[in-house]
Design a protein around this nucleic acid. Structure first.
Lengths: 158, 158
DNA sequence: AAAAATATGTTGCATTTACAACAATATTAT
DNA sequence: ATAATATTGTTGTAAATGCAACATATTTTT
C-alpha cells in the first residue's frame, strides 16, 4: 500500500528529528540505568546542574535554567535538592539591579562531582567507542549550530 | 575557582550528551508550538506513530513501540486515540503463533497525514536551512550509528 | 507620580510519562 | 502432564514535567 507522499516527503523514521529524539531518549535511559547501577545518590538532572554550576560560579537560577533548558520551576526544585544535600550554596545577590538567587558549588559538591565523574567515565567512553573522535566532534558542533538555530525559532519562555 | 578535573574530564555543557538532549528538547518544543499554532488536531507523538504505521502496514503494537521508542502502555494509549479518531484500524492476528494486535492506516488517516505534512513542511525546512544538506545527512547517519550502539547497551524493556 | 510592563523565583495543579502488576496465551523445562 | 518461563497487551499508580498564577521588586511608559 503506498500513496504519492511516500515519494514527495520523507518519513518520520528517516528524519533527523527522529534520530535526534530516539538517540537522546536512549542516552537518557542509559544514564539513568548507569546511575542506578552505580548507586549514585543524585539524578542525572542534578548531576548536570551540579556540573554546570561548577564551571559557572555565581550564576543565577534563571541563567542556569537557560543552560540546562529546564523551566524556572523545575530548576528551582533541582537546586533545592542539591542545596539540601550540601552540594551547592545559594545566596541572594543582584544582577542588573535585580535581586536574584546566585549559587556556587561547595567542597562537598566538588567531591561528589569528582566521585561521579570517575565512576561514570569509562561507561560513557564505551558508548562512543564505535565512533571516531572526529565524528563525535563533528556531530557535536553541527548539533550546536542546529540548536542555536532552534533557539531563535522556539519560544522558550524560561 | 578551579579543580583538577576541569582539565581531566570534559564538562556536561561541552558533551555530545548535552547537545543531543538540548537539541532534541528544543525540537520537541518547536514541534509542539507548531502543532498548536497550525491547529493540528493530533499530538506530535500521534503524528509520529501515524506516519510510522503508514509505512509499516500490519505492524503489531510492540514492534511499533520499539520503532518509536515508547513503552507498550503509552504506545497502546496513542493508538487508542488514533483509532478513536478513525485514522487507524486495529485487528487481531498472530505473529509467531501468538495473538497480537496489528494495525493499518485508514483512508482518513492518509488524508490527515498528507494534510499535516503539507502544513508543516515549510516550517521544518526552515529549521535546517542554515545547515547544508550534507551536514544534515552526515549528522543523521552518525546519530543512527550512535543510536544502534546505544540500543545494544540500554535495557529498553519494551 | 501613577500605571504598566519586565525580571526573578515559588507554588499548585494538570498532564505526561515511567513502571510495576496483571491477564491471557504460548512455549519450554522438569 | 505440570510447572515455569516468555510474549503481548492493558490497567493502575507514582513520579516527572510543563504551565499558569502568584509574590516581590524594578524598570519603563504615560
Amino acid at each position: 500500500m503506498t500513496n504519492k507522499n511516500d515519494t514527495v516527503l520523507g518519513h518520520y523514521t528517516d528524519s533527523i528529528h527522529y534520530e535526534l529524539e530516539q538517540t537522546s531518549k536512549l542516552m537518557k535511559m542509559l544514564g539513568k540505568q548507569l546511575f542506578d547501577k552505580l548507586e549514585i545518590g543524585i539524578t542525572m538532572d542534578e548531576y548536570a546542574a551540579l556540573d554546570t554550576v561548577s564551571i559557572n560560579a555565581g550564576i543565577c537560577q534563571r541563567d542556569l535554567a537557560k543552560l540546562i533548558i529546564k523551566d524556572r520551576a523545575n530548576t528551582g526544585r533541582i537546586l533545592d535538592s542539591l542545596e539540601q544535600k550540601g552540594f551547592i550554596t545559594r545566596f541572594i545577590d543582584t544582577k542588573n539591579n535585580r535581586l536574584v538567587k546566585k549559587m556556587g558549588i561547595t567542597e562537598k559538591g566538588y567531591e561528589e562531582l569528582n566521585f561521579i565523574n570517575n565512576k561514570i567515565k569509562s561507561y560513557f567512553e564505551n558508548v562512543t567507542k564505535r565512533l571516531s573522535d572526529e565524528n563525535v566532534e563533528r556531530v557535536r558542533t553541527t548539533l550546536k549550530t542546529f540548536r542555536l538555530e532552534l533557539e531563535q525559532l522556539v519560544e522558550t519562555n524560561i
